[in-house]
Every structure is written in structure tokens, then in C-alpha cells.
Design a protein around this nucleic acid. Structure first.
Lengths: 246, 246
DNA sequence: CGGAGCTTTGATCTTCCTCAAAAACTGTGG
DNA sequence: CCACAGTTTTTGAGGAAGATCAAAGCTCCG
């Protein structure tokens, strides 16, 4: 059996329309924005959406640049972050399959977005998407509901950043990864963690060293176990929940 | 001249409909949700809205209780907070005139809300509001736009809580009060601060002592000046912005 | 005038950060 | 398959920002 080449940035997909794989066959339709539409309404979507690929580490857009595109995430993970003038960084969220990218940015993007692992996005130009929303008001309802979910996540994160200890933060983080996986239909006890320690630290308001030390403690306490470099087994969800909420 | 009695909870207003003062004459219409509607469309709103009063310190609703009502804030300030099991509190936002209260809570409220000073709210029962939205889809658009603004504020607050120093947090807080006032048409250099040090601390992820010490430093550095117990003059907005962003 | 609740100030302590270096991975090319 | 260069992660020692504990000063009202 010949070894397949490792999945590389597929140059042919860089900017293709969806004639090959129309929206009706979309993997993430039931998770994302298009859940609001019926099969018969997807034709319009196919005609304005473009599939784009971003290898791990690639920027998708930068804070303050004109918000020309909105995206559905088809595959991979995206981090959203803001920088202070001296380089301090706060990651304000991680998005995955089915999430909508570009919420809340009107004229300009209000944060930067970067691919964590290899990412595939379904891109809409802003006026095209607005036209689609005018045609199908159900989409506006769905967007409001998705914005509400984001807002709730942001509020939980404020509690985490303002009031939780390092250990509580990490436990909360692992649980939120687990719940996100469960939502997408995967095993909640085996979370995949594609982001680096530095990313986790900048998301939790800590340093890489503190994140690493806290991981070590959780391993020693048999609450988690490393399966491989990017997969962690959560050995006791109950206990983790106890750790997460004080 | 006889001394007027101090403004007390107006018992007659506790739960009155709006026949006396219909929506067309509403002070905050141009700021809030109803900005989306024309004069001719306000009749429906008047018929389902009820004006309610809450004296300072009164709870408006509690996290996890059924989200039966949504509100427009007509007068005063409301704080939204979440508690951890051991009593640690994080205030996730302050709302004022024109803001919408109840965003993002579907079945149950996702946070508690309490009157900071004397508050007047315009309350809608959830099904009534949903009926109104079905009738006027412009309202859904307006709600999405208001949710986006809240989301952006939440993201800024994550940067503050995750990465800013005590001094940067307080400076950012004063500036955001100033900007909120400017939006409502008041002087941005004289902010009114109706909340206690404990509230500010729980909003900024600090303790009352640290907030107090930081206020003292800003006073000594002539960046701010206390006008009276709840009003602060911002003497140099430029410098404050420098302090706020590192 | 007096008391309850805020606010301020002081002294000490703790958690997490900073700086430094070793260890473990990752991917590349021979 | 292995060597090695670059990156990421882990571990250690010491330091600093802010928390905690304690007490005194203010304010606002009755």
C-alpha cells in the first residue's frame, strides 16, 4: 500500500465555487446557518458561496480591515483574537465546524482570525449574504439565535477570566471543548485539542508556563490523561465539573 | 418652599399600562429597540408593554428562573451578574437608558439582573414580543444589531479581564461610561457612576480595595477629579485612553 | 447625634508571572 | 532510519501585582 501524501493546502480548492459539491451535500449544514433553509432554498446559497482553504497558522482576516466576507466553517478550527498595542494578546474565541465567522463585524472586522489547523471555509461576500437574508428572513432569525449563543459563551468566559483560578479555568476549558464535541456528535470523554499551550494561555488569561503546570497537576491527579500530542482523555467528567466551578 | 419627599418607589407605577404615556412620547425610543418602528406601528407596542419600577438595589430577575419577560430600559441603570457556587460574583454588564434587557435568554435567564439606582423598565411578555417580531420583522433586524453591539462589548471586556492591569481596567471602564453617555447625548467629560466600588470591582475582576487604591492614584495623577459621591470629571480623555490601552 | 454601610488606607500573603534552561516533539533531509 | 535544527512544552527559582485581613474614616440618613 503506497503512503498517501500528507494533506497539504489544496491549491485547486483555493477559490472554487461549489458546483462540484453543492450545499445540499454539505457536511455541516445541520449545524450551521444553513440549517434554517430547506433543500429547495439551497440553490441560491450554492451560487454565492465559495469554498476556501487555509493551512494551519494562516491568517484569515485582520482586525480593522474591511469586513468583506463572512464564513461558515466547514472543517478545522479558527481562533479569534485581539491585540493590545504592546503585543499582549487575548483570544476571544475558538470556532469549529458549523460555526459562523464574522458575526458582529459591520464595516470592519473587530478581531483577527487565524486557522488553528487546516481549515475549510464557505465564504460569502457581505452584500451577497445580505441579499440572501432579505430573500429568506429565516436566516436573520437563525443569525440572531447564533449570536445569542455566542453572547452566552462570552458571558461565561467573562466569569472565567474575572473570577476563576488557573485550575478552574483549565477545567472549564476542557469541559467546553468536550461539550462542543458532543454537540457535533463526537465522544465527550476524548477531546481533541488542536491549539498550542500559548493559544490556550491567551484564551484563559494565563501564561504558557501556568497552563503547562496546571496540565501537569491534572495529569498527576488522574483527572486527565494524554492520549497523544493533541488528544486528551477526560477520565472523570464529574470531578472536572467540580474543579471548573469552585 | 417645602422640602419634597425623596423620590421613592412610586407604588402607583409598579405595574401600569401605558395608556397615560404612549410609546409615541417615549424618551428612549430613538435609542432602543423601538427605533426600528414608525409612529404608526407603535400602537401595538403600547398595548403589550407594561411600565414597571424598581427601587435601587431591587432584583429584577434571577439566573435560572424562567425568562418570562423582556425589557426596554426607560430610566436608571441595571447590573447583570453571575455567581459561582462559593459566592464569587462576576458582573457581566451594566445597562442603561435605551438598552434591551433579556437578550440571549431563551427558556431561562442566563444571569441575574438588579437595579443599580431607581429603574423604570418597559416590560414585554415573551410570547407578546415574539408576536410583535413576527408582525414587524424590522424588529428582528434591530435585535440582531443590538446583540452584535453587546457581543462586541463582551469581547472588549474579555481583553480587559484577561490581559489588562488594574489601572488599565479602571481607565477603560471610565472611558466606556463616558462613551455610553456621549451616545445618549450627555457630556463625555463628566461621568456619573451610580454603582458602588464593590460593583465596579466585580465588573473589572478586581477587589474593592484595589479599585479604591487605583482611584486614589488616578486622583493624585490629576487624571480624574471627584465632583460628588457619584460624579467624576475626566480631566484628560487622551491620557485616559493611553492608560486604558497599555 | 449616632449607627450602618461604604470607602480608604495599611500590612502581609498568595497566586501567578517572569526569566532561564532543560527536555520533548516535529518535520526535514541525508 | 537517523541526525539535527527549530519549535513547543516542561520544570525551576525568584519576583510582583493584586488578594486578603484588619482597622480607621466618611457619608448618608434617620
Amino acid at each position: 500500500m503506497t503512503k498517501l501524501p500528507r494533506a497539504q493546502p489544496r491549491p485547486l480548492d483555493q477559490f472554487s465555487n461549489l458546483s462540484a459539491k453543492p450545499c445540499a451535500a454539505c457536511d455541516v449544514r445541520s449545524l450551521g446557518l444553513c440549517e434554517a433553509l430547506g433543500d429547495d432554498e439551497l440553490g441560491r446559497v450554492s451560487s454565492i458561496a465559495r469554498l476556501k482553504s487555509y493551512p494551519a497558522g494562516t491568517p484569515i482576516f485582520h482586525e480593522h480591515s474591511p469586513a468583506e466576507l463572512r464564513f461558515n466553517i466547514v472543517q478545522g478550527h479558527v481562533k479569534l483574537y485581539k491585540l493590545l498595542s504592546d503585543g499582549r494578546r487575548q483570544i476571544i474565541g475558538f470556532l469549529g465546524r458549523g460555526d459562523f465567522l464574522g458575526l458582529g463585524s459591520e464595516e470592519d472586522y473587530r478581531y483577527s482570525a487565524e486557522a488553528v489547523d487546516d481549515v475549510q471555509l464557505c465564504a460569502f461576500r457581505r452584500p451577497d449574504l445580505e441579499g440572501l437574508i432579505d430573500m429568506y428572513p429565516k436566516l436573520e432569525h437563525r443569525l440572531l439565535s447564533m449570536a445569542s449563543i455566542e453572547l452566552e459563551a462570552a458571558q461565561d468566559q467573562m466569569v472565567l477570566l474575572g473570577r476563576k483560578t488557573a485550575c478552574e479555568r483549565l477545567a472549564s476549558f476542557l469541559l467546553s471543548l468536550s461539550r462542543a464535541q458532543a454537540r457535533r456528535g463526537d465522544d465527550p470523554k476524548t477531546v481533541s485539542v488542536p491549539m498550542t499551550r500559548a493559544d490556550i494561555a491567551d484564551y484563559l488569561g494565563l501564561t504558557t508556563e501556568t497552563v503547562s503546570r496546571t496540565f501537569t497537576r491534572l495529569k498527576q491527579d488522574r483527572v486527565i490523561r494524554m492520549l497523544d500530542s493533541s488528544r486528551i482523555e477526560l477520565r472523570d467528567l464529574r470531578e472536572l465539573e467540580g474543579l471548573a466551578n469552585g
